[in-house]
């Protein structure tokens, strides 16, 4: 949890949406891919900052990095993975589970058990269908 929070802070990058912009550039490059140093140039960032972002996106499985020789020098070519190219889907089965689309999900997740036990929506889903009818 802590390390994730640290990662997310890193991803904010001073509000510059750098990760998103890198992903947009890589997506737009298509099958041919784009040279890592061209990404730095377009976004006007240094390789130290850029490498962190690239490594993170590679870990998330959104981009791949391969070494190619360009004008006699070894450089990195960045390509979009199938995961990045695909548009995420929202399977219809999710509609049947009350918590997934609930606006209070973050609150229940961070809160105590009492919250989960007293949730009206969850109780209705769980109990209404099976509690014996009233006498």
């Amino acid at each position: 949890m802590q390390s994730e929070e640290r990662e997310l802070k890193l991803s904010e990058g001073g509000g510059e949406q750098l990760e998103k912009r890198v992903l947009d550039i890589v997506s737009a490059a298509g099958e041919a891919g784009v040279l890592q140093r061209d990404i730095w140039r377009i976004l006007n960032i240094d390789s130290r900052k850029g490498s962190k972002i690239i490594k993170r996106l590679e870990r998330m499985g959104l981009i791949s990095r391969e070494v190619v020789v360009h004008k006699g020098r070894k450089v990195y070519l960045i390509k979009a993975t199938p995961k990045l190219r695909q548009i995420p889907k929202l399977p219809s089965e999710l509609d049947e589970i009350p918590c997934f689309y609930c606006p209070l999900l973050p609150v229940c997740f961070a809160g105590d058990l009492a919250r989960i036990l007293t949730c009206e929506k969850l109780n209705r889903w769980l109990l209404d269908s099976y509690l014996p009818p009233r006498a």
Binding site: C99, F100, L126
Partner: peptide
């Protein structure tokens, strides 16, 4: 998904 699973598991 991770959060929903966690909430349902606690329940």
């Amino acid at each position: 998904r991770r959060k929903a699973v966690e909430v349902l598991k606690r329940r």
